[in-house]
């Protein structure tokens, strides 16, 4: 009896994801030339997050895992996001108060 269900992702999907990752990398490089002022870090992190999600979903098979594992990853991501947001709030407030 096979207890653990394995899922095989076809080559076409893998290649599509890889191409998407390459495109997002090029966008990262391109945006580095643009001055987004206070949003510079936010833009870079947003692109990086999209890439991470693709890797998690397809290369790490999260798309085909149980709901509880997905929930774990979402909670972890939200906690991580909150840490970054809180830290950068301090920076934004400090900049806006000129200190």
């Amino acid at each position: 009896m096979e207890e653990h269900k394995s899922h095989i992702i076809d080559y076409l999907t893998q290649i599509k994801v890889w191409v998407a990752l390459v495109i997002f990398t090029l966008i990262t490089v391109a945006t580095a030339e643009v001055d987004f002022a206070m949003l510079t870090v936010a833009v870079a992190l947003t692109i990086a997050s999209v890439k991470s999600i693709l890797v998690l979903l397809y290369f790490m098979h999260l798309k085909f895992e149980s709901r509880i594992l997905n929930l774990f990853v979402i909670v972890v991501m939200l906690v991580f996001l909150a840490m970054i947001v809180f830290t950068f709030f301090d920076y934004i407030f400090r900049l806006s108060h000129g200190s």
Partner: peptide, 16 residues
């Protein structure tokens, strides 16, 4: 989300 209370006198912004 409470770590900033160690930094009240460190020059952190007022709203934070």
């Amino acid at each position: 989300f409470v770590w900033g209370h160690h930094m009240f006198t460190s020059g952190m912004s007022g709203p934070a």
